[in-house]
Amino acid sequence: MSRNKHAKKDIEEALQYAEAKGWRIENSKGHPFGQMYCPYKDSAESCEGNGKWCRVGIWSTPSNTGNHARNIKKVVDRCIKKQEESNNE
């Protein structure tokens, strides 16, 4: 793992959850923590909104830590759901 650990415990936990599902996390320069990339790069076309949630920004100091952590998990879960649906078709 080559990324920095997130200073907020809830968010670090959500990031590890995402990594366990195959998401890649990269740190960015400056204050924001980084970006998180979906593992299914080629499927963006079949994702909601042309894949807008296949790559998301992670803040270092979000205004509400709990919300940010929850949203990270939401993005991951929403994506897996889509994957399962297309596998079942």
Binding site: G49, N50, V56
Partner: peptide, 28 residues
């Protein structure tokens, strides 16, 4: 889109930012 992250974390840190669709940015 990444060039705006620094400014966005100041004004929109109550949003999740999606940048997966080239040319667009989504804010939850």
């Amino acid at each position: 889109p990444e060039q705006y992250f620094e400014a966005l974390e100041k004004s929109c840190s109550d949003a999740m930012v999606g940048t997966g669709h080239a040319g667009y940015m989504a804010f939850d």
